[in-house]
Amino acid sequence: MSVLVIKGLTVEVTTEDGPKEILRGVDLTVKAGEIHALMGPNGSGKSTLAYAIAGHPKYTITGGQVSLDGQDVLEMSVDERARAGLFLAMQYPVEVPGVSISNFLRTSITAIRGEAPNLRHWIKELKESMAGLQIDPQFAERNVNEGFSGGERKRTEILQMELINPKIAVLDETDSGLDVDALRVVSEGINRVCAKGETGVLLITHFTRILKYVKPDFVHVFYDGRIVREGGPELADDIEANGYAQYVTA
């Protein structure tokens, strides 16, 4: 059973006026089979946490630890982290001109599985996953995220998650920008992966909408660079009803 352990994580970014601390000591443990929702106001540092776990070079780790199944994640390069089983669905997925989705996914899967997939199986697998997420098959030949609508990008992130089948998936506002039908389709995709019990999910969101489909085991409230409150699904409803102000002095 995989487990991601984050302890006392502090992170800063470089700004024009020097370094600025964004994460001020994050403690969080996510195990395979669990779904954790992370909720917090704009600018509280949720994406920073997601990027720091994935190893984005913009963020400097100034303290704390992150481990995946006992291995030191912070020592790994970005691609090593992905191959070790970490996955980040980005809030703003990046366009990569010239690289087709099908080429990209095949290269990614080859890297993560350590060998090129059997071509016939692979085509079938890709087709099925795309169909499950209601992605037009023609998207396979389009360039990665180039000209994709916000919702199309989010679906494509979940397509990647489903094919990669990571140990730990961090989903950064995957629900933002989805219409009601897309939200259901994407949620079902997330649930399909979770149902296998091999993946732990950290779901960053602003809305309880998605939590109607993807049922969290734990809810964490993020405020000013740290987790200020933890609880069960009821916490999400409380936030929706009363906002974050109640945690400010917490």
């Binding site: 984005h56 390069s77 970005v78 980005m90 990569v96 990209f104 990614s108 890297a111 993560i112």
Partner: peptide
């Protein structure tokens, strides 16, 4: 970063692009 976050190393990423 995006390509690397999908397990593709830097050299492979440049080749792909």
């Amino acid at each position: 970063f995006y390509l690397q976050s999908r397990g593709i190393n830097e050299e492979e990423a440049r080749k792909l692009v």
